[in-house]
Design a binder for these strands. Structure first.
Lengths: 244, 244
DNA sequence: CAAATATTTGCAACGCGTTATAAAGTGAAT
DNA sequence: ATTCACTTTATAACGCGTTGCAAATATTTG
C-alpha cells in the first residue's frame, strides 16, 4: 500500500505528475512572482488541465507547501555542518535561511506569503512538521549543554522560537523590509527568548546580543526611506478618548 | 478642511454612512461568522450598493480595520483602571483582550482572521497604530519603574511584544484552540520576553511565570481531545521522495 | 428656484480558487 | 484484446473581491 504503489504504475505516475507540477509551480513563481501565480496559469505552465492539480494536491496552499518542502529538502542537513556552540547555532540557522531568501527573494516572498495567507489547516504544519523538529532539537541540545535551564519545555519553547522567526519573515514578505532588517529582527527575537531561558552563565551574552540587535534595528529604521507614517486609510480613528 | 467638513453635509453624510456600514458589518459578522461575510452580503445588510463600501473604505480589509477599531474604542481606557504593578499590567492586558474574545468568539475570530491574513499594506497598521502605542507606553512605564533595564528600546521591544501576542491570537483564530490556551500562550510569550529585559530584581518572578505557563500549556495539551501529550508532529506526507 | 457638483446606484465584467460533469485517455488483469 | 478501475481533460459554473461606467440622486452654490 505504501511501497508497492510507488513502483506500480498508477501511484508512480501520480508521483511523477506531482513533481512535475511542483517544478512548474516553482518555475512560475520565479517568473511571475506572487501576483502572476494562479491555478489557471499553473495548469498551463505544467501542461495539464486545471483540475489535475486539485486531484493531486487538493488546494493551492497544498501546492505551496509542496514547493516549500521540496526546497527545504535541498537544504536540510546544512545546519549539521556548522561549527558553533549550542546557542550560536540558533543564529546560524537564521543566517542560513535568510541568505537563502536573499538569493531568490521574489520566489520566497511568493511562496511564504501564500503559505501564510488564507490561514488554512495547513498553517499549523509550519510549526508541527520538520521545522518544529529542528528547533526542538536545537533547544534540547542547548539544554543538555547546560546553556538553557533544565526547566525549559522543548516543545513549548521551540514553538515560541518558530513563531518569532515566522513573524519576522512575515514582515519581510509583506513589507519591503531588507534582508538585513529581517535578520536583525529574527536575531532580536531569538536573543530575547533564549536569554529568558538561559542559565546564569549564558544569559549575559544573550542579553548583550539582544541590545546589539536593538541598536542595529534602530540604525536600519533611521536610514529607511522616509514614509509619511500614516496608514493609507486613517480617517476612522477618533481615538484619544482616553479621559472619556 | 477637517472640522467644517464634519459639519457640512457631504463629509457628515459620508461619515454617517461609514458608521452605518461598520455597524452592518459587525452585525453581519456576528450573524454569519467568517464564511458568510461577503461584500455583496454586506451591501445588502447595510442597504447600500456594493460599490458604496468601496467608495467609503476602499477595500474589504479596510472595513475590517474600521470594525476592529470601533470595537477597540469601546474598550480603550479600561486598562487605566487596572490596579497592578508595571509588569503585571502586561498580563492584565492579555486578560482584558482574551476575556473580550471569549464573549463573542465567532465575531472576533472573523474580524481578527480577516485583519491578520490580508497581507496588505494595512497589516503594518496593527503594529504602528494605537495598538503599538499602548504596548510602548507600558514598556516605558515598566522601564521607568526600574523593572526593565534602561537599555530597552521601547519601540523594538513593544513591537516584539505585539508580534508575540499576535502570533498567539493567530493560532487561536485558525486552530480550534481554547481561550485558555490562547491566554497561556500569550502569557508565556510575554513572560519570556519581559524576563529577558527585566532588571535583576524583577527577572526571577518573570522566569517563574514563564515556567508556570509552560506547565499550564503542557497540561492543556494533555487534556486535548485530539491526541495525547505532545503537539501534533505528524508529517505532511511528502510521499517518500527522500532518497531520490 | 435652478445650476453645478459630488455621491450613490445598478449592472456588467474581470480574474480568482474551487467544484461538478461527462467524455476521453491510461495502465493492469483476465 | 477486451474489460475494468482509475485519472485526466475540457468545460461550465459558482461565489468571491474589485473595478468601470452611465444614469440617478443628493447636496451645495448661484
Amino acid at each position: 500500500m505504501t511501497i508497492d504503489d510507488l513502483r506500480s504504475g498508477h501511484e508512480a505516475g501520480k508521483e511523477r505528475r506531482r513533481r512535475a507540477i511542483t517544478k512548474a509551480a516553482r518555475r512560475l513563481m520565479q517568473k511571475t512572482g506572487r501576483t502572476g501565480f494562479s491555478m489557471r496559469a499553473l495548469a498551463e505552465e505544467a501542461g495539464v488541465s486545471v483540475a489535475t492539480p486539485y486531484n493531486l494536491f487538493g488546494s493551492k496552499q497544498a501546492i505551496m507547501y509542496a514547493v516549500l518542502d521540496a526546497d527545504i529538502e535541498q537544504y536540510s542537513g546544512r545546519l549539521d555542518q556548522v561549527d558553533a556552540d549550542e546557542l550560536q547555532i540558533f543564529f546560524e540557522a537564521i543566517k542560513i535561511s535568510t541568505s537563502r531568501y536573499a538569493t531568490e527573494p521574489a520566489f520566497y516572498k511568493a511562496v511564504l506569503f501564500a503559505v501564510y495567507s488564507d490561514g488554512g489547516k495547513e498553517y499549523r504544519a509550519m510549526f508541527s512538521g520538520p521545522r518544529h523538529a529542528m528547533w526542538r532539537r536545537l533547544v534540547v541540545a542547548a539544554r543538555d549543554a547546560g546553556l538553557l535551564v533544565k526547566e525549559v519545555d522543548p516543545d513549548a519553547f521551540a514553538l515560541q522560537l518558530g513563531r518569532s522567526f515566522f513573524a519576522s519573515i512575515l514582515e519581510w514578505v509583506q513589507d519591503e523590509q531588507s534582508i538585513e532588517e529581517l535578520e536583525a529582527w529574527a536575531q532580536y527575537g531569538f536573543a530575547l527568548l533564549l536569554a529568558a531561558m538561559a542559565t546564569p552563565a549564558a544569559a549575559p551574552a544573550l542579553r548583550l546580543k539582544a541590545i546589539e540587535s536593538q541598536k542595529q534595528l534602530g540604525r536600519l529604521w533611521r536610514q529607511r526611506p522616509k514614509e509619511s507614517g500614516k496608514p493609507p486609510i486613517q480617517n476612522i480613528q477618533t481615538v484619544g478618548s482616553r479621559g472619556k
